[in-house]
């Protein structure tokens, strides 16, 4: 059984239909990627799966539970969270406080402390800047913080919306490395990326989104070799 199962999801912004019936699934332990051009509906998909924007029809089932109509915060308590587009770290809170917010669902103080130490090991830059206000971090550091913050809740399924956006090539490689490590540690990943080449290379499976519809799906390798993906997303 799939960990996440999305069926015929439609989303409207007023009269504009952003998602025209999207179906996909994510199995335990996989990295699944959604690729698509600007405005294809990737962020909309992520946010409506997460309960941040309401869907008009369709179902979202997580771990056998229908979460279509559940509010976002209770979905998080079920073990799924998201690093949103644009990172959205809490600008006025420190690095440390941001990580504490990430552990909002965790009650044990001792465990939170251990987890934060672990995040500092993963991202030494964050450890060096724990007292710094997040708004003053560089873009790359904010991305690390957003990812660390999301990991604080030990999600079973982590969604990442364009984690490589605006980062230097070196940092982009690092981000993909971290995502692979998350997977190795047992986290299932749903990834949204513009960077088709790099994301397909680490993906088990992927879907191509165009104008609110899925037009192609397959394993990462299959899509890397597909003419359509090559033409539209890999620059020839």
């Amino acid at each position: 059984m799939a960990l996440l199962e999305v069926k015929d999801l439609t989303v409207f912004y007023g009269v504009i239909q952003a998602l025209k019936g999207i179906s996909f699934d994510v199995n335990k332990g996989e990295i699944v990627t959604l690729i698509g051009a600007n405005g294809a509906g990737k962020t909309t998909t992520m946010q409506s799966v997460m309960g941040l924007i309401p869907s008009k029809s369709g179902t979202v089932v997580y771990n056998g539970v229908d979460i279509t109509k559940k509010p976002c915060h209770s979905i998080v308590h079920l073990g799924m969270t998201q690093v949103p587009e644009g990172r959205r770290v809490f600008q006025e809170l420190t690095v440390y406080e941001n990580l504490l917010m990430g552990a909002y669902t965790e009650k044990s103080k001792a465990k939170i402390k251990r987890d934060i130490e672990e995040i500092y090991e993963w991202f030494p830059r964050l450890g060096e800047r724990k007292k710094q206000v997040a708004g003053t971090l560089s873009g790359g550091e904010q991305q690390m913080l957003a990812m660390g913050r999301a990991m604080m809740s030990h999600p079973e399924l982590l969604m990442l919306d364009e984690p490589s956006m605006g980062l230097s090539p070196l940092l982009v490689d690092q981000v993909f490395e971290i995502i692979k490590n998350f997977q190795k540690n047992g986290t299932t990943i749903l990834l949204v990326e513009q960077n088709a080449g790099k994301s397909l290379a680490i993906s088990d499976r992927a879907y191509v989104l165009e104008n609110g519809q899925i037009v192609l799906s397959g394993t990462g390798d299959e899509l890397l070799k597909s003419d359509m993906v090559k033409k539209a997303y890999l620059g020839g």
């Binding site: 509010p71 969270t81 770290v89 909002y104």
Partner: peptide
């Protein structure tokens, strides 16, 4: 929105 993603 981000607060909700923390489970708030």
């Amino acid at each position: 929105g981000a607060a909700q993603l923390m489970g708030v």
